[in-house]
Structure formats: C-alpha cells, structure tokens
C-alpha cells in the first residue's frame, strides 16, 4: 500500500508577516521558508502508518517552483521513500492543486492521500476536500487520530462540537489537524541519506492537467490593528472599568 503525502513550501510559522506597501502581496524576499506545519504532521503520520507495517511506501509530493525541492528534501529526511516535484512557476490555487493531486493519485494508485488541513499562508482549507470530490473518494478532514483497519480507516475528526469518528473505505483522502502527532526531528545523517533519495520532476503538461479557473487577488492589505489599551493596577480598578462599560 502506498501513501501519497502533500508538502507545501510556506513562509515560516514564526515570521512576522509584512504586507508590501504597493498592496501586491506579502514580503517573501529573504524571509525564512519552511514546510507547512500541517504537512509535517501529514508526513509524520504517513511514516508512522508505514512503520506500523500498514503501508509499503511513502511518496511526498509538492507543487511549485524549483526551490520547493528544499521541502521535499525535508520530507525525504524525515523518512519518505521518494518524492515527486510538480514544477510550475504559476500561482496554484486549491482547485488546480486538487486536479494535480488527482492526476498523481490516478498514476500512483495510493490507498491514502494525507494532506495538511490548511496551509498557513492562504489559510484556504480546501485542497483535501476538493481532491475527495474530484476522485469520488471519501474524505476525513481535521484528523486527530487515524486507525487503518484493512480496507477502511476510522478517523477521529476535531470539529466544533467535539471529536467525531468517521469510518471511510480506502482509498481515501485525509486532512490532518495539529493534535494528530508530533513530527520527528530530522537528524543530520538522515539529511545526508535524503540527498540520495530520488525526486522525480514533472510538469502539469506531463500530467495532462489544465489549470482551473482561479480566484483573482485584486490587492493585499494590512488589517486594522487593535490598539493596546491600558494596564490596570488592581482587580478593583478592573471591575470598576468593566462595570462602567456594562460588561459585568
């Protein structure tokens, strides 16, 4: 059984985002880039499923320009067996991303596609669900626990009401949430070993995928910021101001 796992290169979690003055986007020059944290969790889960003897191969895939291979190398260093780089300089939105993943799934025939529930740059939270739709596969989003049981999986999902369990037939697409696992640290020897693992580079044309209609970004702006208020010195003072505002 193969597992296909998606990896996206994003501005690092800890970077303070700066919107460009001309409204054309956010500053990315010289900014630290990393694997989307949710995708790291997806890679980790794929590896754990393999280590439990329930999968034979973990294939990491990314879509984007050449530099995205850095994140594929990270996935390989974590333990993925091989990687596929769908190289494109275009802005790939979720629907096109899902079409690409579907084409790859048709080719590789994985039993599970594991994706992060959202990327921390565009915060769309769409790609897994769209892949589920296009493939006519089940989807189990926002997973905090995944149990593979033969030809199906029982997935615990973090939803607003609590923890929901779904049983899905395989093949299925699973999107992962933060509490599913804690990704392993990559050790130096693994980084060296990862350099010898294969990365296959292909194009949208090779996969016969047309870009979908896209949402057009007209401008990027800085949101209105909350102003810091005042520090109160005592609970009495706090209670007084909250009472004045009619809040308590």
């Amino acid at each position: 059984m193969k597992i296909l796992v998606g990896v996206k290169r994003v501005v690092d979690y800890n970077v303070r985002i700066q919107v460009k003055a001309d409204g054309s986007g956010v500053a990315t020059d010289g900014v630290k880039m990393s694997m989307n944290p949710f995708d790291e969790i997806a890679v980790e889960e794929a590896l754990r499923i393999k280590e439990a003897g329930k999968a034979d191969e973990v294939i990491a895939v990314t879509i984007g320009p050449k530099v995205c291979q850095e994140q594929l190398r990270t996935a390989l260093a974590m333990g993925a067996d091989r990687a596929i780089h769908v190289e494109t300089d275009d802005d790939i939105q979720p629907l096109t991303g899902a079409r690409i993943l579907k084409a790859l799934a048709d080719k590789e025939e994985p039993k599970i596609v594991l994706l992060g529930k959202q990327a921390i740059d565009d915060d769309n939270n769409q790609t897994a669900q769209m892949l589920g739709a296009l493939s006519h596969w089940p989807q189990a989003t926002f997973a905090s626990e995944v149990n593979i049981e033969g030809e199906s999986a029982v997935v615990t999902r973090e939803i607003d009401a609590g923890l929901e369990q779904l049983s899905v037939d395989l093949p299925a697409v699973i999107s992962v949430d933060l509490r599913l696992n804690e990704p392993r640290y990559v050790k130096l020897p693994d980084i060296m070993k990862a350099k010898r693992k294969p990365i296959e580079t292909i194009t949208l044309g090779d996969l016969n995928v047309d870009a979908a209609a896209s949402v057009k970004v007209l401008k990027t702006s800085t949101p209105a910021k909350r102003q810091a208020g005042i520090k109160v010195e005592s609970v009495d003072e706090l209670v007084t101001v909250l009472k004045e505002k009619g809040l308590i």
């Binding site: 629907l95 939270n125 769409q126 669900q129 769209m130 892949l131 926002f142 896209s214």
Partner: peptide, 17 residues
C-alpha cells in the same frame, strides 16, 4: 469548511473561504 470545497470542486469552480 469540510463541506463546501467538496461542493465547489464538483461544480468545477474555486471557493472563497
């Protein structure tokens, strides 16, 4: 969040989240 992208993809249109 779970539901609408599945609808959008079936209809062949992007979603605005």
């Amino acid at each position: 969040k779970d539901l609408m992208p599945r609808v959008a993809a079936h209809l062949g249109v992007p979603q605005i989240s």
